[in-house]
Design a protein around this nucleic acid. Structure first.
Length: 307
RNA sequence: GCCGGGGUAGCUCAGUUGGUAGAGCAGGGGACUGAAAAUCCCCGUGUCGGGAGUUCAACUCUCUCCCCCGGCA
């Protein structure tokens, strides 16, 4: 029988956690995270991970397990998440994917090309070339892999260097790898998104920072700085983490850090919506509409409704 | 009151020797195949504080008034 899962995508601060818990209670579910920041162990408050009380409602997987110094690639995430989903289903529970990282969700459901991890040494070498040559690297890529180069903007450091890394590490071009279709997990997934109008979301985001500060966000960042003083480490790039880190390093006062934190959060929420809007399979709800979400979920799980 | 420094895009500011203005941030839209809360792309007419004068032409020079910020009284 095909595995059926629920998915709750949406921008940061829209109320996904509450909706997911309501769904989990109603259908006997277990939550699996697909948020690239809530995986970090040192930032439970700043990344708005579910609280202990919330987690007590049902199993929660893939939250708060990664050290600040480590990164989790989309591919590595997908492997972990696939296991987590299958494990949840094996326990007789409905997997409920919850999060805001569209790329992670795609990596899990639509899988990535099966490219092996690129060695750190090659990656470092390509980065060094970018530092020296910058945009000219795109010209090199255009000669080696014109298809990939055509799709990547010359200024896009991450994608230009990634394409070159893959070529050097595997001897095959990125576009060649992409031609090779990957096999998806074959699950049936019902996507019930949580979002709200921009003006309303803004208010929530501002209020949420106040709540996070009251919940010890600054102390959390201070403790994280002891654990991992290198603020260029992956975990420190989270919104709120970076700004509070800068504040603790004496680069700005707390008010300035919080202003920046809020602005960056808003911009991020906008980018998330750009990603999710494209996904026509998402049915959207506003916070507080848990009843309707549960109804839709029950219909889907009873098998009478196509995903 | 006097002496400086200012008043230009929602905010912070650039504007060479006069040719009616442009960056960053914010805001809006978009992309996204292992860094993704990342990375990147597109979108800028605004009484250039008000008024007058000089000039073919003034954000730019002159006068005057108003308002900020320092310092001296």
């Amino acid at each position: 029988m095909t595995l059926r899962a629920l998915c709750v995508p949406g921008p940061t601060g829209a109320g996904k956690t509450a909706a997911a818990i309501a769904l989990a209670r109603a259908v006997g579910g277990g939550v699996v995270n697909f948020d690239s920041r809530q995986v970090f162990a040192d930032f439970p408050v700043i990344t708005a991970q579910p609280t202990a009380e919330e987690r007590a409602a049902c199993p929660h997987l893939l939250y708060g397990f990664l050290p600040t110094a480590e990164s989790l690639s989309a591919g590595a995430y997908a492997d972990l998440a696939r296991q987590a989903v299958e494990e949840t289903a094996a326990r007789g529970m409905v997997p409920i994917l919850v999060g805001g990282t569209g790329f992670y969700l795609r990596a899990l459901l639509a899988p990535l090309a099966p490219i092996p991890p690129t060695p750190a040494a090659i990656r470092a070498a390509v980065q060094a070339r970018w530092e020296e040559q910058g945009t000219a690297l795109h010209e090199a890529l255009a000669r080696l892999d014109p298809t990939a180069a055509a799709r990547i903007h010359p200024h896009d450091q991450q994608r230009v260097t990634r394409a070159l890394e893959v070529l050097e590490a595997t001897g095959r071009t990125l576009s060649d790898w992409h031609r090779e279709g990957a096999v998806g997990p074959g699950w049936e997934v019902l996507k019930l998104g949580v979002a709200l109008p921009a003006a309303a979301l803004r208010e929530r985001l501002a209020a949420r920072i106040t709540v996070m500060l009251a919940a010890g966000a600054v102390a959390e960042a201070r403790a994280a700085l002891v654990q991992c003083p290198d603020r260029t480490a992956p975990g420190w790039s989270g919104i709120g983490c970076a700004e509070l880190g800068a504040h603790l390093a004496g680069e700005m006062d707390l008010d300035a850090a919080c202003d920046l934190w809020l602005r960056n959060t808003r911009a991020y929420a906008k980018r998330q919506m750009t990603w999710f809007r494209r996904d026509a399979s998402i049915r959207w709800f506003e916070p507080g509409q848990e009843g309707a979400m549960i109804q839709a979920a029950r219909g889907f799980l009873s098998g009478n409704m196509p995903g």
